[in-house]
């Protein structure tokens, strides 16, 4: 499988503790910047009812969907509900920029 590395721009575009949605091709990817400094990237849409996860409240490596509070682990993609999980992407900081691998 081929991977592409994409520079999403300055890390300052995401306020501490928030998430932001990026459109990569046709894919919506949510990138989060936890207060601890960790970066995470997952698919933006909740598998339950399509909620925008980038708008969710995060902390301790988890995000809570704003629509019905389903929770997802940001590192593994595992969901709080049976049969629900989200795609996880590799993301890191490089010289003050967010670098995503898809």
């Amino acid at each position: 499988m081929s991977t592409t590395t994409i520079n999403l721009g300055s890390i300052e575009n995401i306020a501490l503790g928030h998430g932001r949605c990026y459109l990569v091709g046709d894919e919506e990817i949510a990138v989060f910047r936890q207060r601890s400094g960790h970066l995470f990237a997952i698919q933006n849409r909740c598998p339950h009812r399509n909620g925008t996860l980038s708008e969710g409240v995060i902390g301790a490596g988890k995000v809570i969907c704003p629509l019905h509070s389903h929770k997802f682990d940001l590192a593994s993609g595992a969901g709080s509900e049976a049969d629900e999980c989200v795609k996880v992407y590799t993301v890191r900081e490089l010289d003050g920029d967010i670098v995503l691998t898809v």
């Binding site: 592409t4 590395t5 994409i6 520079n7 999403l8 721009g9 300052e12 575009n13 995401i14 306020a15 928030h18 932001r20 949605c21 990026y22 459109l23 990569v24 091709g25 919506e28 990817i29 933006n44 980038s54 490089l94 920029d97 670098v99 995503l100």
Partner: peptide, 18 residues
């Protein structure tokens, strides 16, 4: 704060860092 009222941002318009 930055991005408060921004919708999804187009990533492919940004520089590829391959």
């Amino acid at each position: 704060y930055p991005g408060q009222f921004n919708g999804p941002e187009l990533a492919h318009a940004l520089e590829l860092a391959e």
